[in-house]
Simulated scan of single mutants.
Amino acid sequence: MADREALINQLAASMGAGGYAQTKYEESRYDPDTGTLYCNGQIITRNTIDLAEGFYKNMQAKCDLKTPEGRQMAAIYQVGIEGISRLRRAEK
């Protein structure tokens, strides 16, 4: 079983996953050099992060700020936008 896991980890590393094997046992981390987030055993690429940011901004723009519920949802989406913004600041 250990050989299978090693093979999978080697394949992941050869495809650019870097230290993926360690993420199963470590806390989440962000690699500012590649723009990749390693979280809960998943590799979240810069492209996926860009898509998430676009999603949050799009959904926030649809919120009706005239209602308390709309303002609350806009604030929730802002949390996601701010989180992504903080990741990006780590790249610099």
Rank of each mutant, 00 (worst) to 15 (best):
L87W: 02
L11K: 09
E69C: 04
G18T: 06
Q78A: 15
I84E: 04
Q78P: 04
T45A: 01
R86T: 01
I8V: 13
A52G: 06
G35R: 08
E91T: 08
T45E: 00
L7V: 05
E69V: 09
D31W: 09
M73A: 09
K66I: 05
R86K: 10
P32L: 00
P32Y: 00
G35F: 13
D50W: 13
R86Q: 05
L65Y: 07
I84H: 05
A6D: 13
A75E: 14
G80D: 06
Y20L: 11
R4I: 08
A13S: 12
M1P: 09
N9W: 15
A6M: 13
K24S: 02
A90D: 05
L37Q: 01
G16T: 06
D31P: 07
Y30E: 02
N58W: 09
A52C: 13
K24Y: 15
L11W: 12
R46K: 15
S85K: 11
Y77V: 04
L65V: 07
K24C: 01
G18W: 15
A12G: 04
M15P: 04
N58L: 12
R46Q: 14
N58D: 07
Y56T: 06
N9D: 15
G41L: 05
N58H: 12
T34G: 02
A75T: 07
M73S: 05
A17Q: 09
Y56E: 03
S85A: 14
G18I: 10
G19D: 13
A12H: 02
I8G: 05
K57T: 02
D64W: 08
A74F: 12
A75P: 02
G35T: 07
E26K: 08
R89F: 10
D33C: 04
G18V: 07
S85H: 11
C63E: 00
E82P: 00
E82G: 00
A90V: 04
K57C: 02
T67K: 07
A17K: 10
Y38N: 02
R4M: 10
M1V: 08
I84G: 09
K24I: 01
P68N: 12
A2Y: 15
E91M: 14
A61Q: 03
A74L: 09
K92L: 11
Y30N: 03
R46F: 10
T45Q: 00
T36H: 06
I49C: 01
D64K: 07
F55E: 04
C39M: 13
Q78V: 05
Q42M: 14
